[in-house]
């Protein structure tokens, strides 16, 4: 069963920005799926269309086989959303936010009360149930948005950059909360621009860039294609010309700095032999750390500046 099936989804905003250029995507039931991409790639737009916050230009969306256009109410009842930006009624009491949310989904008052208690306790907000939302810290507000999304116990939970701007400790506890929900059978889709987040949490991943899906695979496959590692080499003397070495991609950063992409099948010795043969003396080297950027280099032809 597919939790989500998107076909040829396009979105052109009124200012003529083409945010989605024909995106197709399948997410299986029970999956933990990452939609990974840099800022402005179109993640929030895609989530917005799936959650009825953005009008699509064309294409179709199905939630567990129910079309979002023709079976709107039912399809919507299966989705929970934790949005990227706070959208809580700041003067409302914490518990009321949850009870109202349940009400919008047609859940009876008594069941709503039970669930509110369950999720407030799970998310460590029980003591704050009588507080106004505006009195909460931003970490608490985010947890409240998690609790809110769980009130109707959706089969598909969508998290739009759930941990952006959240400190490490809270991020860890959110991760384990989400993992717990996934273990109970809920399909999770999260968007992120941190590769680490996708790597630590997710089973499958789609990479979106400039409104297009440029990779859609399992996280482990993706990481193994990343077996190329990049290093920065600092040279003893300026090198006038880049040496050409078989199978190696060398880039000149400046006169005394080179960057090299090295496949795991190559040994370091191989590299240094060739560099020595070209009279290049390496003083020191370091790993290039930004792996997401590296991945984009790999997946898009020329990388991005």
């Amino acid at each position: 069963m597919l939790a989500l099936e998107i076909r040829d989804l396009r979105k052109i905003y009124s200012n003529n920005v083409e945010a989605l250029k024909g995106v197709s995507l399948k997410v299986r039931e029970g999956d933990f799926f990452a939609l990974l991409g840099p800022n402005g790639a179109g993640k929030t737009t895609l989530i917005g269309i799936v959650t009825s916050l953005v009008n699509k230009t064309s294409g179709s969306v199905q939630i567990f086989g129910h079309d979002l256009d023709s079976q709107k109410s039912f399809a919507k009842s299966l989705i929970g959303l934790v949005p990227q930006e706070f959208n809580l009624a700041i003067f409302e009491k914490v518990e009321n936010i949850l009870l109202q949310q349940a009400g919008y989904y047609g859940i009876s008052r008594s069941l709503a009360k039970q669930r509110a208690e369950k999720y407030l306790k799970k998310l460590d907000l029980w003591e704050k149930r009588e507080s106004q939302v505006r009195e909460l810290s931003s970490g608490m507000k985010r947890r409240l948005m998690f609790a809110r999304a769980m009130m109707h116990e959706p089969k598909l939970l969508i998290l739009d950059e759930p941990t952006a701007g959240v400190d490490l400790e809270i991020r860890r506890s959110m991760w384990s909360f989400i993992q717990g929900i996934n273990r109970e059978g809920v399909t999770i889709i999260l968007t992120t621009h941190y590769l680490e987040e996708a790597e630590n949490l997710c089973r499958n991943v789609a990479i979106i860039d400039h409104g297009e899906i440029i990779a859609n695979t399992s996280v482990s496959d993706l990481l193994s294609t990343l077996q190329t590692e990049s290093f920065v080499l600092f040279l003893a003397q300026p090198c006038a010309e880049l040496p050409v070495i078989d199978d190696l991609v060398l880039r000149k950063i400046d006169d005394k700095t080179l960057e090299i992409d090295l496949k795991k099948t190559h040994s370091m010795n191989y590299v240094f032999e060739h560099l020595s043969a070209n009279n290049i003396v390496v003083n020191s080297m370091r790993n290039k750390v930004n792996r997401l950027e590296e991945m984009f280099m790999l997946l898009t032809k020329n990388g991005r500046s």
Binding site: S73, E85, N87, A89
Partner: peptide, 17 residues
């Protein structure tokens, strides 16, 4: 106000017709 604070999104995402 709901539009401004954006909590109208709660209702828009929900199955409420």
């Amino acid at each position: 106000l709901s539009k401004f604070i954006r909590n109208i999104e709660e209702v828009l995402v929900s199955p409420a017709t």
